[in-house]
């Protein structure tokens, strides 16, 4: 069954005119890890807000595990589709980590023991058990975003959407988040939609999607997408750095096979120069 399905979805902000999302079609399979790439203003954040009913589409149909999203089942959908946002400072409601992780579970009226269990689970899955009683405001950016992920996990969602959740972090924080997300996908079987403009982060996804002007313009495995540098550049995107090096080397006449892996590239170079 498809985890997420968008059919002919369009959306525009009244005050702007012009579509933010323009006749978008997208299916995401259960347990899939999809990276959504796009430049600033390509509509990728609007996509995140449409998928759990924070925004209502003007046209088209969105369904989550076969259930069409409408105003009546908003809560059921939101339980299943967790969203982590961009700014690590703007997502925590409570002062202490534990209370913030509990927030969603409290909202859906779970009994205390169950909330406790879910906090344990969420903190463990994001690797921040030791921060349980910390003050959220004093954590690093990466830790804050992990708290935000834990807060979403407490609702036991089947899909997690990360809406540029790594954009404001330093490299270390970014790595923490991508690792946690990858683990959730592989170990908990959670479907992941990672929205980003760092090409590197798309590499571990099963599938990469490129958005431009509110619609999907490229998709395929990350390797397939990154094989088309010219096209990516027209969408203000680029290859991961390693891909750029590959292409430059090839342009200089080194017969290097396409790769996005450092060790493989090193092997290729050694083969070529010796």
């Amino acid at each position: 069954m498809n985890a997420l399905e968008l059919k002919g979805v369009s959306f525009s902000y009244e005050e702007e005119g012009g579509f933010r999302i323009d006749n978008l079609n997208l299916t995401v399979g259960e347990g899939e890890f999809v990276a959504v790439l796009g430049h600033n203003g390509s509509g990728k954040s609007t996509l995140a807000r449409l998928c759990n009913g924070l925004l209502e589409a003007d046209a088209g149909e969105i369904s989550v595990f076969g259930v069409p999203l409408d105003s009546k089942n908003l809560f059921e959908i939101r339980k299943n589709v967790g969203v982590v946002f961009q700014n690590p400072d703007n997502q925590t409601v409570a002062t202490y980590v534990e209370d913030d992780v509990a927030f969603g579970a409290e909202n859906i009226g779970l009994p205390r023991e169950e909330i406790g269990k879910r906090i344990d689970f969420a903190l463990k899955a994001t690797g921040i058990e030791q921060l349980r009683h910390s003050t959220a405001a004093r954590l690093s950016g990466g830790q804050k975003q992990r708290v935000a992920i834990a807060g979403v996990l407490a609702l036991k969602p089947k899909i997690i959407i990360l809406d540029e959740s790594t954009a404001m972090l330093d490299p270390r924080g970014r790595r923490e988040i991508v690792e946690v997300v990858n683990k959730l996908n592989k170990e908990e079987g959670i479907t992941v939609l990672l929205i980003t403009h760092f090409p590197e982060e798309a590499l571990m996804a099963d599938r990469a999607i490129v958005m431009n002007r509110g619609t999907v313009v490229m998709q395929g495995t990350p390797r397939e997408v990154f094989a088309r540098q010219e096209e990516l550049l027209t969408y203000n995107l680029d290859l991961p750095r390693i891909g750029i090096i590959c292409n430059r080397l090839r342009a200089l006449g080194l017969n290097i096979a396409d790769t996005m892996d450092e060790d493989e590239l090193v092997k290729e170079i050694v083969r070529c120069v010796s």
Binding site: I244, R248, L249, L252, G253, L254, V266, I269, V270, V273
Partner: peptide
């Protein structure tokens, strides 16, 4: 710099200033 390190381990010593330009030029 990471690639240079790994190349060195594989027996290819590359003396570059760690810009992409210099890296590809030296390899070429």
């Amino acid at each position: 710099a990471r690639l240079c390190e790994k190349l060195e381990q594989a027996g290819v010593k590359l003396d570059c200033d760690f810009t992409i330009d210099d890296f590809v030029a030296k390899l070429s």
